[in-house]
Amino acid sequence: MNVVALSPFDLAVAALLILALAGLSLRMHLGVERPLLLSAVRSTVQLLLIGLVLKLLFDSARPLWVALLATVMLVVAGREVMVRQKRRFVGWWGFGLGTLSMFVSSFAVTLLALLLVIGIDPWYAPQYAIPLLGMVLGNTMNGISLGLDRLTQDAAQRRAVIEARLALGQDWRRAISDSRREAIRIGMIPIINAMSAAGIVSLPGMMTGQILAGTPPVEAVKYQILVMFLIAGGTGSGTMVAVGLASRRLFDERQRLRLDRLRLPRS
């Protein structure tokens, strides 16, 4: 079975949905027509660009270019984690914390999949490396930003409790343990939910895409299972690393709670 190639006309039909929605929004004074159209245009342009980039990359398959694209993806994800924080760390920590945790977890998990599971030659073949990294990175980014946001909010709100525990002589690990556990749990909930609902409530996008592109369903399912596990591994380890580092950073060398290392939330 071959892929039914989509013509620009086919996409234009789908775009009518967006236009109709924007029209409705205008009539009902919802005020979402601008962001809706803007984001639709943005996604079209961004996806076309990445399509072209991937095409070039697939033709040349030079490790340097793969590494470059992976770096760009990591930096953009790191920035995204940072701007989603209500109280982010001041200075380089704001960007560095999430980015470092994503690097450690996503790259390790993707490398593991490329080297041990898929085992193609060369291992950095962009047809596999970039989509896998993208899926792991995107989900890890969500887990880390949810976990970090929860941790810093919780520490700020429960400051008196944490300091009372310090005053009783507990070390920082014990004083922050409740907030830390909760933050890691919050970061991991989306992937746990996604795994429980997969196949019954939702057909994951990657699998659907492969089936539409003509892959036999059972093959597509096997890849989906692989990806789910990779995502869970990446999200779990990334969230643990990020929340762990952030917890440490909330205390100084004398184990004082240092909320002044967080930026005040913008109202």
């Binding site: 409790v161 009372a164 005053a167 507990q170 070390d171 184990q255």
Partner: peptide, 23 residues
């Protein structure tokens, strides 16, 4: 104070806050 690990110092020189806290 700086010669002792912070938790040890706080167990020896203990602050009892005006508002009690419970977790």
């Amino acid at each position: 104070c700086s010669r002792l690990p912070a938790p040890e110092w706080r167990r020896a020189v203990a602050l009892v806050a005006a508002e009690s806290q419970w977790w």
